[in-house]
Design a protein around this nucleic acid. Structure first.
Lengths: 204, 204
DNA sequence: CCTACCGATCGGTAGG
DNA sequence: CCTACCGATCGGTAGG
């Protein structure tokens, strides 16, 4: 265990503000959330927030850099187990969905709010932290049991991210609106299609 | 050709307002766009807008119901050609990407704005129009040459939508931030993985 | 950390 | 279709 420093009063207040802003912004969007709402929910006066953040934009920036789903996922990628490609991919899909699901729908709204209201201005920074990790995973994938088709590894990774992220997004947003036939065991089927798609076909 | 009625003055003004609002909202988001901005861009006074729409929300609703990507795509689905599953899927992917790409990045922003700022409130209505079309396509898919694996057709369709939509979204938003290895021929690879994933494996 | 305030801008309406 | 206005709310700051 890593020993945590006791947070100072200022650090605690800062966290309170971020928690409050996180809840409101992921629920209402950035422009629709006022500094007054954030202050009230944090149990502070409006002016006090400006002792911790110079502007509303800076509050949002701090949230993105500390809580964006892509950043939340980074530590998880290293700990996925699996002997074969099959096992590894299935474990990864379920671990990621589980992790993201714990914070539903806040994380997805944070992601989309950043894209819509800031035109993805923070994405290069966020993505920069992700890429090396993804390439590591691609490398690892090549060393597992199971013959992979001749598809560039980074593309394979991107397709994997797509498979499960799209599942997650549609499930969160359209779930109740979809007919049941589109939902039953969907994640398992998605993973199955993906695996079948990247592995060399065995002679039946 | 279907003969179009001459639009009345009121209809033309309405369209001018929607065009103006569409441009601003897809660029800035809903909350960040004011009725005054919309009026100015449309060459009208603020008050005049309220002769055509009862509220700001109604302006947005009209835009979603007439221009949401899912609704834009509907007419396209029926005209996809292809003798084999392989051909059909490839044609569909490229046709859809081409159609969506023509309106980039407005369409994607419209979609995401609706989700973030309205919590997908209009989605059931939009989706309702899509489902019968998708099921038609699923039916057609079964009749093409090429043996499909035993995966429920609606799931197969959802996975397809996911494949190309995720390609489209990541390309639009992360394109420049991605390393080249993640981008080269990505759509073709995605389609390849998908096709390999849904077709019964041939004995080599 | 709070109170009290600033100018600006918002969605919407009355009246013509 | 416009002018002129309403009350409400915004992000941010001065001063203590």
């Amino acid at each position: 265990m890593v020993k945590q420093k006791e947070p100072s009063k200022g650090e605690r207040t800062r966290k309170t503000i971020l928690d409050s802003a996180y809840g409101l912004i992921t629920e209402q969007g950035y422009a629709a959330t006022s500094m007054r709402q954030i202050a009230e929910k944090a149990g502070l006066s409006l002016g006090s927030i400006y002792n911790h953040f110079p502007s509303k934009q800076d509050v949002f920036k701090a949230i993105v850099l500390e809580r964006h789903p892509m950043i939340q996922i980074i530590p998880l990628l290293g700990s996925i187990q699996g002997r074969t490609v099959d096992e590894f991919v299935q474990n990864a899909a379920h671990a990621l969905i589980k992790q993201l699901g714990r914070h539903q729908p806040e994380l997805i709204n944070l992601m989309l709010t950043e894209i819509v209201e800031f035109k993805g201005a923070h994405m290069p920074l966020v993505f920069e932290k992700m890429v090396p990790r993804m390439l590591q995973v691609a490398e690892r994938l090549s060393q597992l049991d199971g013959e992979l088709r001749p598809i560039p590894r980074p593309i394979m990774l991107r397709a994997f991210a797509g498979t499960f992220l799209f599942y997650y997004v549609t499930e969160s947003l359209l779930g109740p609106a979809m007919p049941p036939e589109m939902r039953a065991n969907a994640l398992d089927h998605f993973v199955d299609i993906y695996l079948h798609g990247i592995l060399v076909k065995e002679t039946a």
